[in-house]
Design a protein around this nucleic acid. Sequence first.
DNA 1: TAAATATATAAAGGTATACTGATGTATTGA
DNA 2: TCAATACATCAGTATACCTTTATATATTTA
Lengths: 111, 111
Amino acid sequence: MSAKEQDKAIELERSLGVAAVVGKSLSDENRLRILLSLCNGRKTVSTIVEEMNLSQPLVSHHLKELRRCLLVKVERKCLIVYYEIADERIIDIVRRLAHLATDLLSQRDTF
Amino acid sequence: MSAKEQDKAIELERSLGVAAVVGKSLSDENRLRILLSLCNGRKTVSTIVEEMNLSQPLVSHHLKELRRCLLVKVERKCLIVYYEIADERIIDIVRRLAHLATDLLSQRDTF
DNA sequence: TAAATATATAAAGGTATACTGATGTATTGA
DNA sequence: TCAATACATCAGTATACCTTTATATATTTA
């Protein structure tokens, strides 16, 4: 490994703490569903609640968690609150995760 | 959205359950460290324990979790057990996650 | 056979998290 | 001002999860 690659590896290791924090967002199916539902633009909380078929407090709870990890941005327009994806790369990661999980599972019956 | 794209979207949605199971593996810093430490080939449990500076039962516990999600493969050679990455794509995902998390965090102080 | 090695598992504690039901807050409209 | 709307928060419960300490199992070696 070159000195430059070594530096990169160390930098990567250092970021695993924050990576795990963001990774926790990907550990819940409802949050993944919310993230994907936001991939075509911002939505209001009510819209998400209807689409997800989850209780409003539960959706609020998960949105708060996604906000905490900076994965979504909020925009208030008086009574209505819009949520949107903060960084499109998270969608890409979710897609890769889903593909990988599907492939892994196809070799087995269940996790 | 074309009919084909629509099919893909539905397929993706269906896989979010298993995606969340695998995602849970990415929610713990120690597991991320173990995964990355395996990216250059198989290692024994003892080696991982030394490298991670974690207790042996704790490493076993996390390896068990990674096994459950099929992210690592096991190979026994008598007393010694080797663990290795089951699918290289997981390393790619961890890298992307780490980069994204670092970038998101750089816009803030803390999660 | 006894000790040492490599790994897994069990028990227990403490914290975190998902979820529900109830309530709070702020804004809009009648 | 009163009711309705949109969203957040709180209290409570149940479960899951990380971690430690102790112990079990299997294999090798003396």
